[in-house]
Design a protein around this nucleic acid. Structure first.
Lengths: 353, 353
DNA sequence: GTGAAAGCGCTAACAG
DNA sequence: CTGTTAGCGCTTTCAC
């Protein structure tokens, strides 16, 4: 219980104090079966007493395992931190690491320069057993290099070119499809969409979901009802201004933040949500509940998503990177006020009463 | 330029290929001055050709330096991820790490269990050269232990009990003081405040700033004009509901998120911002600009704050932990619409014209 | 079950 | 300026 940990408290020292060899102490620490109970107890007692902690660097050097994984978030993301999506993802990943006794290294790529510096660190020699990489234009190049290095890699949100790599993603296409289908069921006729930044797989899939839902009802895709945003509030705002002349009566925004920005544009144009323009977002971030009106949206199981990502990576580390694992997680439609559903319900009950 | 890095590419191997000794290669890598130019060139060429990267674990073991620091965010924080403050702080810290070629380890303490697991990792033997810890009830215990371990530690936002430790903080007291003084100058008479979670130093300081500004004008502190929030939108909303009966004409909220929640409560009560109740927030998070009306607030230089925190920690690591460094960073009043300033300006110009 | 011995890949005196 | 020699603290065969 000595709280002042001796700086040079090594395995050797513990072995000495408990009257056994270094190897035996190592076995105890690593929970090897081949240690007699009595010895195990004795050694554990000494460890407890002295407050001994194994030196991770030495351990890593000898075993070639660091119990440390990296999370790489590519450049575009630094601005994305305005969006609650990444923090929550990070939280899920951190939680997964804690659960499995892994340490998390965080690599935010802000500049081209960072990118070069980070690559050497993101490998086994850089102390990492494996890496989680957010997909996106910049990330995708890193992914290729790391896969070539034979590193265990799990891509978060599948890359555009997704052969030969494990990934975990959310079912963006069906999520968007469900969002738009909901609007169609509610009777809206001119349904627009605000997409994310083009070039990402999630953006493409959500747009595809929109297209599928519209086309399935035998309607034509009207290009004037499609505007590009960038996943930010401001981006949603400007995209909505582009959409307004086309007079949509409902809009599916590819992120909640963009939906909120778009609703702001609608209000400024003197129109009401959802009476004049109804909205469905994507993500179900906390502010969705506090928006005015509360946002109908597609919920992603994001924290669990992060935990799963970690577990897949650990599986890769421990059982080999082949065959590649591919996981797609489902989404859920959360109906609130911005789509007009609750309004309609109130009107119906008025009529009935 | 062989992109397939040989798995067993070591210093020894590079030494061989360039016809020098291991030490010389080591010197080249570590930029030691005592290497002739010709040899340096030759070695560098071989390194480039082979794509050699030093093994960090071996390096750490031999040199007792890992070039890795940890960021510890205590329990309460996991929920705080709803607030953009922590993501941005993390971004600043990551940026600082990139600039100085350090790797960042992220430790989110979610549960009591995590806390125990994390402590052994957050030490030199856990591969860290130093640690940044967010202050807060839980963090504070960790801080004490780590300081006892003789680890370089920089506390983010000073701990309640701040002797014997280096910290960096923002000037919460003066920030709040300036916010409230601004409201006083604008002529508001019944100025309330929504505080953060009690128990934190930042919360206490911001409340103190409020008190100081009010008292300095010879007014009495009215307890019914003080309500406690928890830095969340919902917390601000409920706190405002408590404040409403006391009929404040202006409110200083200790975070932007709470201000936004409070404005929601005001609107729901059928009142207008800023005509009936004016607001000043704290933080200047991105949504402050998109709030309706746009939020007047106290800007914290948060990204720079994170960068500075890293630099202080590196200073501690390289030059010893004593004497303790204490840095307080200033804030800035950002005037927008929620305090009524722009409204007043418009009215004035109407009168003049 | 336990111990001895040989590294893991690097840094850091110390000679020369 | 460069090479030699010890380790850093642990894991991991391989004997016993």
């Amino acid at each position: 219980m000595s709280s002042f940990a001796d700086p040079k408290l090594t395995l050797e020292e513990i072995a000495h104090l408990s009257g056994v060899s270094r190897s035996t102490v190592s076995r105890v620490i690593n929970h090897h079966p081949n240690v007699s109970d009595s010895v195990r107890q004795r050694v554990m007692a000494v460890i407890e007493e002295t407050g001994y902690r194994p030196n991770l660097a030495a351990r890593t050097l000898a075993s070639k395992r660091s119990w440390m994984i990296g999370l790489v978030l590519p450049r575009s993301v630094s601005s994305f931190f305005a969006d609650p999506y990444f923090p929550r993802l990070t939280q899920g990943i951190a939680q997964g690491c804690n659960q499995h006794d892994f340490t998390l290294g965080l690599f935010l790529i802000g500049t081209k320069e960072d990118e070069k510096k980070i690559l050497p660190r993101v490998s086994r020699k850089g102390m990492l057993d494996g890496v989680l990489v957010q997909s996106g234009q910049i990330g995708d190049q890193l992914i290729i290099r790391m896969v070539n290095l034979n590193m265990p890699v799990v891509v978060i949100g599948h890359p555009l070119n997704s052969e030969d790599v494990s990934f975990i993603d959310v079912d963006n296409l069906n999520g968007a499809y469900n969002a738009v289908s909901h609007l169609i069921r509610m009777g809206y006729k001119r349904i627009g969409t605000i997409t994310g930044l083009s070039g990402g797989a999630a953006t493409a899939d959500r747009l595809e979901g929109y297209r599928k839902a519209i086309a399935e009802r035998g309607r034509n895709i009207d290009q004037s009802l499609i505007a590009e945003g960038d996943y930010t509030e401001a981006g949603g705002y400007y995209a909505m201004q582009q959409l307004l002349p086309a007079k949509p009566d409902a809009v599916f925004a590819a992120s909640d933040l963009m939906a909120i920005g778009a609703m702001r544009a609608v209000r400024e144009a003197g129109l009401n949500v959802p009476q004049d323009v109804a909205f469905v977002g994507f993500d179900d971030v906390p502010i969705a509940t506090y928006a005015n009106p509360q946002l109908t949206t597609i919920r992603q199981p994001i924290v669990q998503f992060g935990i799963n990502a970690v577990e897949i990576l650990i599986d890769l580390i421990e059982n080999g990177i082949k065959p590649h694992r591919r996981i797609i997680m489902g989404t859920e439609l959360i109906i609130r006020d911005s789509c007009g559903a609750s309004l309609r319900r109130r009107e119906l009950s008025k009529i009935q009463s």
